[in-house]
Design a protein around this nucleic acid. Structure first.
Lengths: 207, 207
DNA sequence: ATAATCTGAATTGTATACAAAAGATAAAAG
DNA sequence: CTTTTATCTTTTGTATACAATTCAGATTAT
């Protein structure tokens, strides 16, 4: 059991981010540098830098954990649709056989694996497609959005959404057959269904 | 002549960013916290934070000013096309008369104004369209890319590109007539022409 | 001459200290 | 009773100090 030594800054960043994503720091809550610094047993300096980074990512705004509204979720998904639909077109046109095989394995795992395996496989499915764009700018933008998306649907038991696996399977098929138009259309529907499901999940009954 | 007092951090951020965009700090150059701090007559702390922000924006990578390649410029434009084409569709479908009028004024100014007015009008033309998306997430992503785009074409005498103003005029017309498909197509061509021009400009003859 | 290792200088990362600003509480005025 | 403002407290912004790391050049071994 070797101990990898991360920098204090990185440690702070990851810990605080996870606290937010897990709901240990909840929406609207005030972020106090000093409190976190003593809690993490380090000085305020690296904590400060971590907070700034989280502000960039949109998880924190003016020293408070963001309180996501359904409107923001829609806006984020609107951009996500644009980017991922482009990526899936690239996948249909250019993805090599090896990657296609990996994609297929994600679909299989998602219908047979354990709870955690299913989660991981579904996430990997999207990641593979996004990377098929071969465009680091696009990839980094999707990654930037992922925390916020995750936060929004924290309480959604995601892998239980009906049809999700079937939709993935159909997208895979379109990619495999090189049908870019179909793949794009399916991806759009898929993401919109996802959004609708998130909006109607328990976490959002308030709105 | 009133003196607005910005925070040291903000001052540092703006100064360093401008130095990079103007070419005072040139590609590949090492960024040294201490040097900048003494130069700006402040401590390293705010300088550090400014540098981190510039790293987020992609102007600095591992303490060096980035050295843009034509490949990166293409990748950035690929994303820009996706986002702005969506925005221009929204503009065609939903932009109100007042905004359309402002858009038209940009076209007029661009063909009659002074050097600086032309620059400003052309930039505002795009900004107006991007904001027509009514999507802050999309807007912020475009903004994030803008520094890098500007850096890439630092040496391009942008407003001298042939046809640019005509292209803007045609896009305006499509928006004004509510023809989303046409507007989108024109915008795509416009941005691609822009990219091609940037790639063939003096600054890139090396590649 | 080349590669390996050592040494010292430059630079970054983290901690602490203090000053400025923002916020909360309580007393005074309307 | 509400609003104001005065005072105290908390929190943030910036400066300074020190430790850890990285990097360049010199020195030695092969």
């Amino acid at each position: 059991m070797e101990k990898i030594k991360r920098s204090a800054y990185q440690h702070a960043y990851e810990t605080i981010r996870d606290k937010i994503l897990n709901g240990n720091l909840t929406g609207g809550e005030k972020i106090v540098e000093d409190r976190l610094a003593t809690e993490l047993r380090m000085s305020r300096t690296p904590v400060r830098e971590a907070i700034r980074k989280l502000e960039e990512e949109g998880l924190i705004k003016s020293k408070k954990v963001i309180n996501p509204t359904s409107e923001e979720l829609r806006q984020t998904f609107e951009v996500r649709v644009l980017l991922e639909c482009h990526a899936v077109r690239c996948a249909a046109l250019y993805m090599d056989e090896n990657r296609k095989k990996q994609l297929y394995e994600c679909v299989v795992t998602a219908s047979t694996g354990s709870r955690d395996e299913v989660m991981a496989a579904n996430e990997r499915f999207h990641t593979l497609i996004v990377h098929a764009s071969s465009n680091p700018v696009l990839v980094s933008m999707i990654e930037r959005m992922s925390s916020v998306i995750y936060l929004f649907r924290r309480e959604v038991v995601y892998y239980n959404r009906p049809n999700l696996i079937d939709e993935h399977r159909m997208i895979y098929k379109a990619i495999n057959e090189g049908d870019a138009d179909l793949a794009e259309k399916l991806m759009k529907n898929h993401l919109e269904a996802d959004l609708a499901f998130s909006l109607h999940s328990p976490g959002f009954t308030k709105e």
